[in-house]
Design a protein around this nucleic acid. Structure first.
Lengths: 214, 214
DNA sequence: GGATAATTTGACCGATTGGTAAACATTACA
DNA sequence: TGTAATGTTTACCAATCGGTCAAATTATCC
């Protein structure tokens, strides 16, 4: 008797772990490009190289697949912000945050697009996470930045909009990759644009925080 | 005999103009949220308040509707960049460009999201426009910025990444509106966040271009 | 090796998809 | 006002959608 998701034995089989991995990988491919509504189980099944009913054996619904994907990605996505250190040097913290975010845009563009799609649609599946854990984390880091400004370590600025602008500029290189490539032309077809962006953005934000002034 | 899109007489009827307007308005509502694949003709028809076959009388296919929408929006969307004046004062040009882009994010968020959706999907419908007209316009304005830098009016910087960063930061307030609202909390439920963003971004970029240094 | 549980698949279902045909209603214009 | 063109709707189509079911196959463990 087939009981999906191993309801009988609480432990997950080796096959389960492997197949769920394959499915989520395929789902990331599809969802990140077409969004939730625009993606079909058949598409994902084809990318995953298995039959549709087989997919539905591991994830009972399309929503369950999307949910699992979002949950997994959400945590690792906030990793760089979490690593933002209150005790560190402001300039190097800002620099390394930008660098890390750009590396993620370069190495995990699908994850970035998955979130972008979700945001564009009004975050119907993750609004709670935004208002809860995300807001808390941002509030905490905003307080750090505010404290730096109060201590005279950096110029005064709105910490929330600072964070927004770092998010948007870095993720832009993942989400709008086609546009960036089209505008830059084929001479930047390698990963050079990420290094150029890193140089430009680090300078922009460091100067913007007045950390380079005497 | 019904011939779609007035094939016989070349002129467009009053009714045609009105209905096509209504349809494109509804299509913008739907496409901007769900993307091309995720949107259905029935959805658009319901928003437009007419029957599905009636929609298809004016636009023969879903693609034709999307195409017409993109074409119309594309032109007005680049308006602010076109207005960027080589003979103007660098600081005020940058400032007003940022302000204009933020106003568009505030007043035309659907148009912004429509493009964002298209970019996320790899620009399957507009890649030619990106490589052609868009790239030309950006190349032209980039040259202006480079000339300013050479003349010592602003600090040296990569003009392409400067433009990218202005695009991304401003459009962020349209495309990621849910996230911005969630993080800022409900006390910023009005349009105040746009004014805060304008203040922050103008300062960031003006400082970044060294225009405030002695 | 055999029993038992876990996995996989083909056939199928009702709902929804983009789109059509033709009848019906309305408008514009002589 | 008559009539031809334009506009609208009902009924429908084949394809695809998310998802189910039972049967077949494979892995696991004693």
């Amino acid at each position: 008797m087939a009981i999906p998701r191993a309801a009988k034995t609480q432990r997950r089989t080796r096959i389960q772990e492997e197949k769920e991995e394959v499915i989520l990988e395929a789902a990331l491919d599809v969802f990140s490009v077409h969004g939730f509504r625009g993606s079909t189980i058949d598409q994902i099944a084809e990318v995953a190289g298995m039959s549709k009913p087989n997919l539905l054996y591991y994830f009972r619904t399309k929503e369950a697949m999307h949910r699992a994907l979002i949950d997994r990605v959400l945590f690792t996505w906030l990793e760089p912000l979490r690593a933002f250190d209150a005790n560190g040097n402001p300039e190097s913290e800002i620099r390394s945050y930008i660098r890390r975010k750009l590396e993620m845009a370069r190495d995990f563009p699908r994850e970035s697009r998955l979130f972008a799609n979700e945001m564009l649609q009004g975050a119907p599946h993750v609004e709670d996470e935004l208002r809860g854990p995300l807001k808390s984390l941002v509030d905490e880091k905003a307080e750090v930045i505010r404290a730096w400004a109060k201590a005279g370590k950096i110029a005064k600025c709105d910490p929330y909009h600072l964070i927004f602008s770092i998010w948007s500029t870095t993720q832009h290189y993942a989400d709008f990759d086609v546009q960036v490539r089209a505008v830059l032309g084929q001479e930047h077809s390698g990963d050079g644009r990420f290094e150029d962006a890193a140089r430009y953005l680090e300078k922009l934000f460091v100067d913007g925080l007045g950390m380079r002034r005497p």
